[in-house]
Design a protein around this nucleic acid. Structure first.
Lengths: 258, 258
DNA sequence: CAGTGGTCTAGACCACGGT
DNA sequence: CCGTGGTCTAGACCACTGA
């Protein structure tokens, strides 16, 4: 502290960096948190460039290597994406098709294809127990139930029961299907201003019941994979909750553990 | 290149660093690969300290920050573990029980328990196609086949077919079961000097055949979860390949995607 | 060509662990 | 107390992108 032989960088006592947060945290961690908050607040739209590293370093009154470290962290977490020579971009998450991380559909040429989507029903119902727990509501609270069927090569492969919390998504009930398309998350973003930043999936296997068996065109009681999914905003609040049932013969998943 | 105004660090043309690998790769990547290979070769035993960063920097004739980057990478990959003030350690991985990341067994108190293990058979056989592919051998090459049954509360829950490449694991065939215990990876390490640093699992669902149905005490044709696992050393060479079949009603998996 | 991210260096100081 | 990893700086040069 009081060492008079101190040579290098001037003491960092000046206020300088406009980063809050717990001052005991390293600077790169506080900058990471600040950038994450600015992304969540949509200061930069998904798909847009954030300022260059040099500009960020100036803004946070620190060296370029320190902001690089924060940015690298956010890239690992999947919030940002670097393109050399071009810039650093806010990643536009594309989770709707990520259900098909669990199921495999490849055509004759071995290309991965996303099954077609059909909305069968949209009704206001009292929330079933699982959906209520997933959405953080009381059992029986009114929610919008959406029944969606996924077909691949004319064959039903996945059936989804979606539950949307109600004041917010009321308008979804009457939207024309032509205005919706095969993916819902872009609709949530465009029409309801909420961006899905992460999802939590829970998988299990069960015998399929009558109605779902009919929709999937399989024998009642045959095995299906159940994917329970909560869609979450950047601040971890729940946007929707869904239970998907998929044909077990299409299930495939690969994971490397270290 | 020929800029005479060049000021800083001397051109890195001297041979200096004894790192091989593709010279187009960044230095930190080549050092990472070299360290990974040295770990795989057990130059440092699991649990032991590797040389200090300053020493590594000297050895590779580079700056401390470059080796830091390589070490950070290996820490993220789970091969190393840093302890501030103490040193950087080779992680001793514990993967054998990680099969039960896919299946859930909790006792009355909700504690997770690892099922008991029973070796039913050890025979030398020509490698079946899947095992040969997994091991990088030709179909029909001789391998050691181990049939293992896992029981939980006296009930069979998982049956595993393991395939061990043969010159190396020949001695395993005659080892007394008392010298083996419920986990194999420690045996591989202690008796055969090879350390499993990572595993690659591939999951699917299928109807179970006659013999495996009998072992699992389920109806032939009922659904089981198949886990194909390759056990890999730190340098990604394959140590064994196995196919586990587990009761579908015990399957459960949770994943957060960002 | 200018601007962006990617690699690498050299060095100071801090915080922690064990002796 | 010394040695270890952890944070941060300042700056040069390289490789790529896109106008």
């Amino acid at each position: 502290m009081s060492d008079p032989t101190r040579i290098s960088p001037p003491p960092r006592d000046e206020p300088g960096a406009p980063v809050g947060g717990d001052a005991r945290l390293p600077l790169h961690a506080r900058i990471r948190d600040d950038l994450a908050a600015r992304i969540a607040a949509q200061e930069w739209a998904p798909g847009a460039v954030i300022p260059a590293e040099a500009a960020l370093a100036r803004h946070y009154a620190t060296s370029i290597n320190t902001v690089r470290r924060s940015v690298e962290q956010l890239v690992r977490e999947g919030l940002l994406e670097r393109r050399q020579g071009s810039g650093t971009y806010v990643r536009r998450p594309a989770f709707d098709a990520s259900l098909f991380r669990w199921f495999h559909f490849t055509d004759q040429d071995g290309r991965v294809t996303v099954p077609e989507s059909r909305l069968l029903r949209r009704t206001v119902v009292p929330a079933p127990e699982d959906a209520a727990r997933g959405l953080g509501l009381a059992r029986g609270d009114a929610v919008l139930h959406v029944l969606r069927l996924r077909l691949w090569a004319e064959t039903p492969v996945v059936v989804e029961d979606l539950y949307l919390p109600l004041p917010r998504f009321a308008r979804f009930k009457e939207m024309p299907e032509s205005a919706i398309g095969p993916l819902l998350y872009p609709v949530y973003e465009r029409e309801f201003g909420c961006l899905v930043a992460q999802v939590e999936d829970e998988l299990s296997i069960a015998a399929v019941d009558g109605e779902h068996a009919t929709l999937l065109q399989v024998q009642p009681g045959s095995a299906v994979v159940i994917v329970d999914r909560a869609s979450l905003a950047a601040d971890e609040s729940v946007i929707d909750w869904r239970r998907a049932r998929g044909r077990a013969d299409r299930f495939r998943y690969k994971l490397r553990l270290r």
